[in-house]
Structure formats: structure tokens, C-alpha cells
Amino acid sequence: MSRVAVLGGGSFGRALAIQVARSGRVVTLWSRQPRDPAHANVRSTTRIAEVGQAELVFVAAPSIHIDGLAQEVGHYLDGTHLLVHVSRGLIGSDLTTLTQRLRSSTPCRRVGVLAGPLVARALAEGEPGGAIVGSLFPEVTEAVREAIGGPTMRIYGTSDVVGVEIASAMVGLFALGIGYAQGRGFGPATTAMLATRGMAEAMRVGVACGATERTFSGLAGFGDLMAAVAGDGRPESLFGRALAEGLPLPEAAARAGAFVEGAGIAAQVTAFAERHGLEAPISAGMAALLSGRASGSAVLAQLMSRPVRGE
């Protein structure tokens, strides 16, 4: 049976490793600090060269570390490896996706992204659920299905890679926003409004990057956002709620318990939308809120006073 490796020992990386191990596979879990394996089939290591032994490699690291990590692990990879990242991040204001970065910094071409309503806790506990793999290569989707699919996990596939990556990143941002709104005491109508108009915004940005609209109504878009709204306890929601309580950014980040990409995404998407003449008022409002340029009520008032047009 082919080997699987997970790069990154954060909560999500560990949960993925356990999910793989549960199906009886041996999985290598690499992180900078030694980790407790947590399962008999998980081999924990700090030597990155060991990752090269695997066929399928999950990259579970924040986007800010992806360049360095890709270069480091790239020394031990070649064309046979399948690379799949799980990040909600994008790079720079031209919204370079992480699969693009993995392709340019490693020799690997068979790359993909894993997204959808996946949270560490549900994964680790084996709760029934599903996820989506975006990859041009059917064999990447198959490999992920073999590795983590099973009686509790359905893995879908799509070739709209950029769609999955943009949807996933923007859902991370809106989950933060919805967490904030819920923390401020707003009810389901406000949440629904944020979610729906948010996805319309995500779709515009996605299509400008070459994505297909349909992807945004699937697992990577609305599916994922529904789990956040329903309160799956993901770090983005916790982060938003902490902000609503008035905690400063560093403390809110600490409360989230994992790196939250959403904060950076708001500013990146806003810059991208401005340059391409797209409307992205929710991202712009979130960027203003997160940078401290505007209060929550000011952002809300601004959003509600925009002219209304056909949906």
C-alpha cells in the first residue's frame, strides 16, 4: 500500500494524519517540533527527507510558510509525487493560488487542493462528512479518496482548481465575518444575508480568476459556508467572535487556536477587486474592520446603505 505523508503538525495536519491512519495505512507526519503520534500508524518525524518516501503528500501549512516549506521539501520530491494542500490562503494581491506556488517551487506537477466542510475535530472523531478535491489530475483525486475517503468521508472531485481555492479562501473570510456578526448578536437573517451576498462576491472574484460559477454552490463554497454558519467551531468563527467581544487581533488569533488566513484575504481580495473593476464590498468592509480603519457598526451601515440592484 502506498505511503502518505502530512506536512505540518498543526491541529488540522494531525487530524488528517489520524484519518489516514484509521484506514490502516502508515502515515508520516512531519513537523518542526516533535509531535505525539496519537495513533499507532502515525510515524511522527522532524526530518523532512522522510516525506520523499510517500506518494501522496498533504501540505497543511499556512500560506505564509508555503514558499519556504515547498522549497525545503522540494529537494526530496520528483514527478511521481502527488501534492495536495488544505490551506485557505492565497498569495499577494494578484491572488496567486497555492497550487500554482507548489508547482513553481517544487518539481511536482500532479498537485491539488482539498477543501470543503472539514474541521479538525470532526475529522479526528470520524463524524460522517465530505470534502472536495480540486485537481486537473484524476489520479490525485483518486489518491486522496484512497487515503482519507471511507465509510465516514465522501471525497468528490473537480477540475476547477482555482475555483476551489478561491471559494475556500473566501469562505474562510466570510466565516470570520459571520462569527463576528453572531458575536455581536445579529440573528439568522443577517447571517444569511452575509453568506449569500458574500458568495456572490466570491463568485465574481473567482470568475475573474478563471473559475467556474458552479464550484461556488458546491462543497467548496456554500457547502463549506453552511458548516461554518451552523457552528462547526472552526478557528475562523472563533476568531470572529473574539473580535466581536472587543479583543485585540493578537488575542483573538490566540483564541482561534490555529492560523487564520481570513484576516489577510480581506485586504488581498479588496486590492484585486479594485484593480479588476469588480465589486467586493463585503471584503472591503472586512478589510477596513480588521485593519482597525472602521468600526463594526460603521462597516454595517456602509454595507446597508449601498444602492440595491437586481440580484
Binding site: S2, E55, Q71, G74, H75, D78, G79, T80, S104, S105, T106, P107, R109, R110, S135, L136, F137, P138, E139, S159
Partner: peptide, 30 residues
């Protein structure tokens, strides 16, 4: 050449589980 300047074998790109194979879906993606 890999991005880090190492030489790599292009055959690895058409290899799956140790076998060089013809796979139309894969080649369309390449």
C-alpha cells in the same frame, strides 16, 4: 532541472506506482 537546480528524470511524471504508463486524462492535464 527541478526548481532547485537538481537534475530530475522526466520519466517520473508518467510513472505511477513504479510503472511508466499512458494515461490520457493525466496527459491532458499536463
Amino acid at each position: 532541472l527541478a526548481p532547485d537546480g537538481r537534475t530530475i528524470d522526466p520519466m517520473t511524471y508518467v510513472t505511477r506506482r513504479g510503472q511508466a504508463v499512458v494515461d490520457h486524462a493525466r496527459d491532458a492535464a499536463y
